[in-house]
Amino acid sequence: MQRDGTRTRNERSGAGTESSPAAGVHRSLRLTGLAGLACHLALVLWLVLRPLPVAWVYDANLTPLASLRSSTVWQVVGELLLLAPLGVLLPLAGGRIRAPWLPSFLRTTGVSALLATGLEFLSSWTPGHVLNVDHILFAVIGVVAAHLALVPGLRHLLREQRPREPRVSVPAVPSVTAVVRVATAAPTARPRAYAEPTPPAH
């Protein structure tokens, strides 16, 4: 391991440290997000895939917003809130409090769209459920709204409250040029001149 005078190469690159901006992964937040994500998906699977004892159902809807005429306000709110916690849980599971907002927003939206589509296709095989593209659309809108409303502010609070580790200053190693200058500028020690003993006077 080589030093350039003040820090090592690993310290400059931030590799291998959890608190460095390059890594930026908070382990406790990541574990909390993964646990919450698992619990929420288990609840969603139970709500979506359970059979419904209904006498009749609507036909499959592949036209966006076509089912609004036959839906009540509470049904629309329920579809918006079904996957809305993913807007916070997905970034929390990543554990990055210094991630840029646009890549985080795009990742969260893409993953939630894939999950909503998969859940909708799975539920269409369950008795009492039919394929409805509006369910996917409302679920993604709920995730986007929750992400934009909560995640940027929460990340800002975590960045402000997280204590920063103090930097350990390493004394700089003097360069060869400085040592040569000091050596040439210092006065050279001269041997003491001893006076020859004078002969005694007669």
Rank of each mutant, 00 (worst) to 15 (best):
G95I: 05
V48Q: 14
E120S: 07
T6E: 10
A139R: 09
L82K: 07
P152D: 00
A193H: 12
T63Q: 15
D4H: 13
V88A: 15
H156I: 01
A22F: 03
A84D: 03
P187S: 14
L154R: 03
R159I: 02
L106I: 02
V130S: 13
R7G: 04
R167K: 11
V176D: 12
A146D: 01
G14T: 13
L154K: 01
G95H: 08
P152Q: 06
A22V: 15
V77L: 15
I141G: 00
P163R: 11
A195K: 04
A116D: 05
V48F: 09
G153W: 12
V54L: 15
L62F: 15
V182D: 12
V180W: 10
H40R: 01
E18H: 09
E79A: 14
L49F: 11
V130Y: 11
G5N: 04
Q75K: 10
R27I: 08
I141E: 03
C39V: 14
P200E: 13
H156T: 04
L148Y: 00
R162V: 12
A145D: 06
L41Y: 01
R98A: 14
V57K: 11
T17P: 04
R155Y: 08
E18R: 10
T72V: 06
E160Y: 00
T8M: 04
R96C: 13
A201N: 08
V168M: 05
R12T: 11
A116L: 01
G110C: 10
R164C: 01
R30L: 15
A66V: 07
A145V: 14
A84R: 06
A38G: 13
S20L: 02
R181V: 05
I136A: 08
A15L: 15
V168K: 06
G118Q: 01
R30P: 00
A99D: 03
L47G: 06
L68P: 02
P51V: 15
W125Q: 12
